[in-house]
Structures are given as structure tokens and as C-alpha cells.
Design a binder for these strands. Structure first.
Length: 282
DNA sequence: CGCAATGTTCGAAA
DNA sequence: TTTTCGAACATTGC
């Protein structure tokens, strides 16, 4: 399940594999993946286009072509797989889009759940695309300011975990890292956001930056293995402290990790380190 | 067989 | 108007 670190790792892998390649043909086997424009237009427009660079914003990948930006979101299980020239490209029922390059190599998009989406927009227009234009800051020190974050917490009536999943607050956190970040900051996932103390907000802010940076450095988590697609490196296992560890001892205090549901999402936390605090609203 | 899982969008509710 | 909630989306795997 690609969250920011996985998408960033995919981006790096793609740059090394397909930068500067020219599209010869595009085949779409599952049209719903292409959000816009119409599928034939999408395929036609890409012919002859060169991939100048590949960028990322939140969990979105952006292929910067000569005249267009191709926005790609992997959602839950989207993957890219690269096939060198003179190699047989694997095509199965999960292969939905195939980009063939003029040098004989190709890039195919696979997605078991068919939830991923692609859209082609005019060059330079990706920041205005619906999912992207409303994204909050990238979770790195320079962009993600503590002041702005505290303000969002103060003014929100939601619980802290759903707030972290809201991409308008900070871009790139998903269900896995949201649990990890709350564990590190010792905050209960159901704590109302506006009841966090200044100290808690600060440690949460730090935890978000630290955990994502560490995961990016490590090359992304892998719940499931991500195939070779994206680069020789492969993916290291980032060690998770709470996500998927139901019943296992908390790495800090040995209390068994609990799993509950918060805003319809499976949520893992340590009932000893992360206590729900009853606080009067000021 | 029924349901959980996942991220985003959309429509409804507040 | 804005924010939040819940359904929908597609499919697999338990």
C-alpha cells in the first residue's frame, strides 16, 4: 500500500529506468484506469512524447512529458513493471496499461484492485489537477510548519487519526504511517485533535517528519513485496512498531498492541503508551 | 458466504 | 460556506 515513502521509491526507480525514453505506443486494457481524457485521445497524445522527468506530490506520481503531464495514483495496489528490450513482457489479467518505448523496452502498469488512476493534462498543469491542488504541505521540515499544523489541530473537530489521513493537512500519510506516527508521539488515535497539548502537537509534528524521512531513506515499507519493477535496489523492510502487530508486545513497554476501528479504518495502538486523555476544551 | 482491507472522491449532513 | 462523515469504487483473501 503505497504511501509517500513507497511512492517516492517508485519515482526514483522509474527515473533510472525510463527517463528520456520516447513513447511509441500505449495500450490500455482496462479503460477505467484512465480518468481523462478519453482513452483513445490519451493513447494518441502520448505517441512521440519523451519522459523528461518524473516528479511526486503527496502520493501522486507525475510523468513530465514533452507536452503533457501524466498524473498517476497507485491507490492501494498499483505497480509499475519495467521490461527491457528483447525480453518478454509479462501480461496477465492485472496488466492494465502498457507504455511501449521506441527502444523496444516497455513499462506496464499492474493493479490487482483496479483502483489506481491516470490522467493526462497539459504541460505544467498537474498542480491544478483535482486531487493535487488541495494537498497540504509535503512532510519535510522546510514545508511543513509547526505553526500551521498546530492551527489546523486547534480548529478541527475531528479525531487526530482521521485528521492525519486528511491529505489537506499534510500530504502523503496513509493508514500505516498514521498509526506509526501516533505511536511514536504517544498519542491515542481517538484523541480529539483540538485537545492535543502544545507539546503533543510538537512531538507529533516531529514524528511525522522523522518517520517519513526514515522510510524514504530505507526505500519504503513493504507489506507485500513490490516486485522488481522499480529499480534494482528493491525494497528494504522498514520495521513497523504497531501497524499489523495486533497482540504483539509494544516495543516500548511490552503491552500487547490493540486493534480498533477509527473512522472505518483499522487502527493499531499501544493501550499503555497511548492513553486517551479527557480534557476540557478551552 | 460475508466482510475487511485500502485511498480518494463525492454527496449528504451538520 | 466549510467541515466532517459515510458510501462507493474493485477485487482478493480470510
Amino acid at each position: 500500500m503505497p504511501e509517500l515513502p513507497e511512492v517516492e521509491t517508485v519515482r526514483k526507480g522509474l527515473v533510472t529506468l525510463v527517463q528520456d525514453k520516447t513513447v511509441a505506443e500505449v495500450i490500455v486494457r482496462w479503460p477505467k484506469i484512465i480518468e481523462s481524457p478519453a482513452v483513445d485521445t490519451f493513447c494518441q497524445k502520448l505517441i512521440g512524447q519523451v519522459i523528461n522527468d518524473i516528479a511526486r506530490r503527496g502520493k501522486f506520481l507525475i510523468f513530465e512529458f514533452t507536452d503533457f503531464d501524466l498524473i498517476s495514483h497507485l491507490r492501494m495496489e498499483g505497480k509499475y513493471e519495467y521490461t527491457p528490450k528483447n525480453t518478454e513482457a509479462p501480461v496477465d489479467k492485472h496488466t492494465h496499461v502498457i507504455f511501449k518505448f521506441t527502444d523496444g523496452s516497455q513499462l506496464s502498469y499492474h493493479d490487482v484492485r483496479k483502483f489506481g488512476r491516470m490522467a493526462l493534462v497539459e504541460k505544467g498543469q498537474y498542480p491544478f489537477y483535482k486531487g493535487i491542488k488541495q494537498l497540504g504541505p509535503e512532510p519535510v521540515e522546510e514545508e511543513f510548519s509547526l505553526q500551521a499544523f498546530e492551527k489546523k489541530l486547534q480548529h478541527s473537530s475531528s479525531l487526530i487519526k482521521p485528521l492525519l489521513l486528511n491529505q489537506k493537512v499534510v500530504a502523503g500519510l496513509g493508514n500505516i504511517y498514521a498509526d506509526e506516527v501516533l505511536w511514536l508521539a504517544k498519542i491515542h488515535p481517538q484523541q480529539p485533535a483540538r485537545t492535543l497539548t502544545k507539546k503533543e502537537a510538537e512531538s507529533l509534528h516531529q514524528a511525522i517528519i522523522a518517520i517519513l524521512a526514515k522510510a524514504v531513506r530505507a526505500g519504503g515499507t513493504t507489506i507485500r513485496s513490490y516486485k522488481n519493477a522499480l529499480g534494482e535496489a528493491g525494497f528494504f523492510q522498514v520495521s513497523l512498531n504497531v501497524y499489523g502487530k495486533t497482540g504483539e508486545p509494544c516495543p516500548r513497554c511490552e503491552t500487547p498492541i490493540k486493534k480498533i476501528k477509527v473512522a472505518q479504518r483499522g487502527t493499531h495502538f499501544c493501550p499503555h503508551c497511548q492513553k486517551l486523555k479527557r480534557r476540557k476544551l478551552s
